[in-house]
């Protein structure tokens, strides 16, 4: 079986500050790895290195077991999604989603078919002709997903994709994402600072702090680890429980 994404000994510094040190990870097909970390802990840098938007000081990134270090971002088959939807403001919902297909010069019929299928899947029916500034936050984020997923990338990198959404929309999006990830057998790295989201979204969970990445063998191991603040959260809810009783 092919490993969609693997890194060996990735390290990166900005000046004297070491942001990433010796990062090793390996993802199986159709697996989502959540990575938990505080803001500024280097998780965004890690994703940008994986996506080729920044180059590491040392180490190698493999996509489908090929060293992609020398490839330009556009040739890596890895899609990076920001916290902001970053839709192209001059294109409609349809054209935003179809963007990757247009680049690949796929013929009009197929583009139309695949894009409309994606629009249905994302529950964006009837919005094909809207412009980005006519959409709500959740809708924008869904278009941004569709735009990323339509070309079937090997790996999807998600950088706090639901960070700007309200709690309700957020949980809707989490469900939708899980469902689509299953449907389309997506391999993804999901970065978040929210413990609950990390547990919910990940098949496996890792955490990043002070530039080092720890990947836990199981959710239990993650919960029990003291570094992640999971225990504190449990205690907090329990204390409320006691007080109200």
């Amino acid at each position: 079986m092919v490993t969609p994404l693997e890194t060996k000994h990735i390290s990166k510094s900005y000046g004297n500050e070491r942001v990433l040190s010796d990062i090793n990870l390996s993802l199986n097909s159709n697996e989502t790895l959540s990575i938990l970390g505080r803001s500024g802990c280097g998780k965004t840098t890690l994703l940008k290195v994986l996506g080729g938007l920044e180059s590491p000081d040392g180490g190698t990134v493999f996509v489908n077991q090929t060293d992609i270090q020398t490839l330009q971002p556009q040739d890596r088959d890895v899609v990076y999604l920001y916290q902001e939807a970053l839709l192209f403001p001059h294109l409609t919902v349809f054209e935003n989603i179809a963007f990757g297909l247009r680049l690949r010069k796929i013929d009009e019929k197929k583009v139309s078919k695949r894009t409309h299928t994606m629009i249905r899947k994302l529950q964006l029916n009837g919005m094909a002709d809207r412009m980005p500034d006519q959409l709500s936050g959740g809708q924008k984020q869904r278009v941004s997903f569709g735009r990323a997923l339509i070309t079937n990338p090997s790996v999807l990198l998600l950088d706090e994709p639901f960070g700007n959404l309200d709690a309700y929309t957020r949980s809707n999006m989490q469900e939708l994402f899980k469902q689509i990830a299953n449907d389309l057998t997506i391999t993804a790295v999901f970065v978040t600072h929210n413990v609950k989201e990390a547990i919910l979204m990940g098949d496996r969970i890792g955490s990043i702090s002070e530039g080092g990445l720890t990947i836990y063998p199981s959710v239990e191991a993650f919960v029990e680890s003291e570094k992640n603040g999971v225990q504190e959260e449990i205690e907090f809810w329990q204390s409320i429980d006691k007080n109200t009783n």
Binding site: G52, Q74, Y82, F88, P89, G100, R147
Partner: peptide, 13 residues
């Protein structure tokens, strides 16, 4: 610049 980075990861030269 961010939008064109997005386009780049989507495969745009």
């Amino acid at each position: 610049s961010e939008l064109s980075q997005v386009a780049q990861t989507l495969g745009a030269s």
